[in-house]
Design a binder for these strands. Sequence first.
DNA 1: GCCAACGTTGGC
DNA 2: GCCAACGTTGGC
Length: 161
Amino acid sequence: MAGGRQYWLMKSEPEAFSIDDLARSPKKTTSWDGVRNYQARNFMRTMRVGDEVLFYHSNADPPSVVGIAEVVKSAYPDATQFDRLDTHYDPDSDPDQPRWVMVDIRFVRKFMAPMSLDLLRGQVGLKGMELLRKGSRLSVQPVRAEEWNEILRLERTQADR
DNA sequence: GCCAACGTTGGC
DNA sequence: GCCAACGTTGGC
């Protein structure tokens, strides 16, 4: 796996920040700030430029994977942790040893049709996917190459209808 | 170190 | 709006 491209899934509530918001952002790029979960942070620390990301809309109707982004900047300190006025302010984070990081991601493309949780659950090849696990809340999660390929294959069959 | 209480996430 | 499934906090 060394040097290989990795795949990820990142969740966002479309009301807060949608894939369309990403597509409209300057350079189609945004800083993925505000992550305050250690497991998610640890995954972000291992992200490399060129890694690919499934963009997922949570708390959406229906909740769906809606497109693809790519990592364009690896982990660096999340500025919002030091901003008292920000909702993600963390008074316990030491500026000399920032607790939270963010990465930059860039819009790649939006799927022709959103791929809903229901649709994904119907795929045998996605049985073990973290996203589909009951109670799964991880907002940044790894995606296996087989899962990534299965989802892109699914996308093509959806587009052919 | 245990664990109850609490806060959050996110599907439904 | 409900609530299951978490993760975190803090008393002990």
